[in-house]
């Protein structure tokens, strides 16, 4: 398998490797894939509650080089975007940027899934928080 220079670059110098505090309400975590399938991605975001901008993104990936590169690239792309903007990122954009061959398309799909899962987790936490706030407001009246 010949890898594109961009895949090799992300493999050698993966961006934003690490982990964020899962329990923080500002953090959303997406864990997708399965060890039996040979690929697991964990992508995390820290969102500014005022601006809804993703200020920090971290990943770790168990998978082939293309999966590592896809998730590394995904963290780069979502950083600085608003949550809704980040949801607009498509796996086909990743395929294009990294010149992935057809057999590696599912690795990019996984990265898109990871973005959605992380944002979904964050939204779930924060809609719950909003309801709590609202409830408190009602009681205070």
């Amino acid at each position: 398998m010949a890898y594109s220079d961009k895949v090799i670059d992300h493999y050698n110098n993966p961006r934003n490797v690490g982990q964020l505090d899962k329990s923080s309400t500002e953090v959303g975590t997406g864990l997708v894939g399965a060890p039996e399938c040979g690929d697991v991605m964990r992508l995390q975001i820290r969102v500014n509650p005022e601006t809804q901008v993703i200020e920090e993104a971290k990943f770790k990936t168990f998978g082939c080089g293309s999966a590592i590169a896809s998730s590394s690239l995904a963290t780069e792309w979502i950083k600085g975007r608003t949550v809704d903007d980040a949801l607009g990122i498509k796996n086909t954009d990743i395929v294009k940027e990294l010149s992935l061959p057809p057999v590696k398309i599912h690795c990019s799909v996984l990265a898109e899934d990871a973005i959605r899962a992380a944002i979904g987790d964050w939204k779930k936490k924060n809609s719950a928080a909003e309801t709590v706030d609202a409830a408190v407001a009602v009681v205070a009246q």
Partner: peptide, 24 residues
């Protein structure tokens, strides 16, 4: 392994078989 979420989880004592993986 620095990039591997599985290695990190195992090192933290998490039992990977107990996780509900979204197999595809």
């Amino acid at each position: 392994r620095e990039l591997s979420p599985l290695y990190e989880m195992v090192k933290e004592g998490i039992d990977l078989t107990k996780i509900q993986w979204a197999a595809h």
